[in-house]
Design a protein around this nucleic acid. Structure first.
Lengths: 329, 329
DNA sequence: CGGCAGGATTAGATCGTTCAAGTTGCTGGA
DNA sequence: TCCAGCAACTTGAACGATCTAATCCTGCCG
């Protein structure tokens, strides 16, 4: 077993004091060029790594970011979080931060977990995925001035805190335009009940695009809970109309998959576009809107490191999804 | 801003020394009952939390476990990792450990990351998902006596290190028996090319079960890379035989999904069973073998905490998957 | 040639915890 | 009576970094 290499070992090896080694690491500009080089050589030669715990004790900063990992809500959308996490870990890594996971059952438990993580581990920042109306978690964090970012806008107060989000309306608008461009005129929307910020946003993009094309009059629009069975049922409703739609934009891949099953029996082909570009969509050839999760994750990290290192950037980032064309539209 | 509560604050409040407070936390049995109660009340009243960094500096243990998060290999199986991670985080939490994520491109980079994590963060243990033939990573860790567990057996040396795995053979055996029980006699297997431990294992369960039923003679068996298109293609090959199979056991949900597409056009109905019980399987009603990921994760944590706290358990855990019956079999 | 500014470097204290080595007070056996 | 032995608790040092304040040069100005 090799001896433990501390800052003192490096200092001795490079014939300088501990503090100079520390300066080479944290404030290189105040160290003379030649000394710096000598220290850096010693660091490389000895394979020295600054002990994070000791550093943290002195500075009060852990270079750790916490992210909640949820219990894979509906499954089909679960892999969204998966990809987001990967992007987050990678970008954080590059910025010198590491990602710590936590779980929580309920808001109270989650807040207790914040308290614990902050108290015991001196966590630097939190990333929350999804917020809801009057979220107690963001209030708690804001009150204590703990840096955090949410992936997902706070719909009731868009300026409340830093966030990164994907522009759902821009996505469905893009999908709708694509359908208009390929000749469709009766374009339906299959979404969630009004009241969810994300769902309403996605519906808006479809509606405004149709309106801009002068087609909003009788645009068929249905709302249901998320799910494949639900999607199929509602799509059958749409197909049973006098003038059934020739295309449908869906608020999720689950709904789109259901719709796809319904249109299989239809007399004329019906175009279907989903949302989230889940692996399932890729698997069955469903055209879908892909969220730039890696970019979103990177922006979250940028926002946080900006806050932590004192050079804040624009705290509200809205990203456009991209339409991935496959067989169904 | 409240004053920072340290062990000294608690000690003063409870009229004891720092060390006694420390003992209440780490070795309660050596503290007199009444003193212990007084200290615990002080801890609760002040909301004291032991500073992990300071503790770590003294003990050299961080109560942190690292897990690699992969770049969502093929997508359709991505959510397996997702669920595993969630289980891991939850069990680790209960055992007083936290989960740190890391990514790596290539084995060399991964080993460099180990070095960094161990050097800078004093990581207590690693969880690796999947190992391959002559894995340099496990060798590196073993050489340095770093505690680790793999989720997935080391196929070439089953005793080499602690692992937790799901018994693929038992799974496909169960699936095959189910098909035999429901009257099927021509049961095919659709799997991966020989050489992958997991794939061979899954094939074995099917073969031995057929053999035990005296049906192994002309059991049709095909091998291909994983993927929906590949599954569909190979299934069409099987269906084109003189005596086409009436059922097929697949090594993955991707292959099963492909098979499902192929049998849709078949003259007579063909039963299909997949493996992994991915969200897609649930979505399309595919019967599939479900891996007990939460249990597997829990066992990984148990193994590690056992190693770390000095009461090791049986280091090789093999879990049975369960057959989730849906429409397709 | 003395003094002084200021850049480069160093020594000592400190963060919050646990370890090692005491100290105290009590019991009981010779 | 005395002290060994033990349980319960306390004190000082140490972990490895950074912060603060002091020291050492070196060059330049008056």
């Amino acid at each position: 077993m090799a001896e433990k290499v501390t800052i003192a070992t490096v200092a001795r090896h490079a014939q300088v004091s501990r503090q100079t080694v520390s300066n080479v690491l944290n404030a290189p500009h105040i160290v003379r060029e030649e000394t710096r080089r000598r220290v850096q050589e010693a660091i490389a030669a000895l394979g020295y790594r600054a002990n994070q715990a000791a550093r943290q004790m002195r500075t009060g900063r852990s270079r750790l970011i916490a992210v909640r990992i949820e219990p894979t809500r509906d499954g089909i959308n679960g892999s969204v979080l998966d990809r987001f996490l990967h992007g987050l870990t990678e970008t954080a890594d590059a910025a010198g931060y590491r990602v710590l996971l936590y779980t929580a059952r309920g808001d109270d438990h989650e807040i207790a977990t914040y308290d614990d993580l902050l108290g015991a581990y001196d966590l630097d920042a939190f990333v929350l995925t999804g917020t809801k109306h009057g979220d107690p978690r963001t209030a708690w964090l804001a009150e204590r001035e703990v840096p955090f970012v949410t992936f997902g806008r706070p719909w009731d107060a868009p300026e409340a805190h830093p966030w990164v989000d994907v522009d759902g309306a821009a996505g469905t608008a893009q999908a709708t335009r694509r359908l208009l461009d390929t000749g469709h005129r009766r374009i339906a929307f299959l979404g969630w009940p009004a009241g969810s910020g994300v769902g309403d946003d996605r519906r808006t993009g479809w509606r405004t695009t149709l309106a801009a094309a002068g087609l909003d009059g009788a645009a068929p629009d249905r709302a249901t809970e998320d799910g494949i069975a639900e999607g199929e049922r509602e799509m059958r409703h749409l197909l049973a109309r006098d003038e059934p739609p020739t295309a449908v934009v869906c608020a999720s891949d689950s709904l789109a998959l259901g719709a796809l099953q319904a249109v299989r029996d239809a007399a004329t082909p019906v175009a279907v576009i989903g949302f989230d570009d889940t692996p399932v969509a890729a698997a069955v050839g469903l055209t879908s809107l892909s969220q730039p999760l890696a970019v979103a994750a990177a922006r979250c990290v940028e926002l946080l490191t900006g806050l932590l290192d004192g050079h804040p950037t624009d705290p509200h980032v809205l990203l456009d999804p991209t339409l991935v064309l496959r067989h169904t539209a």
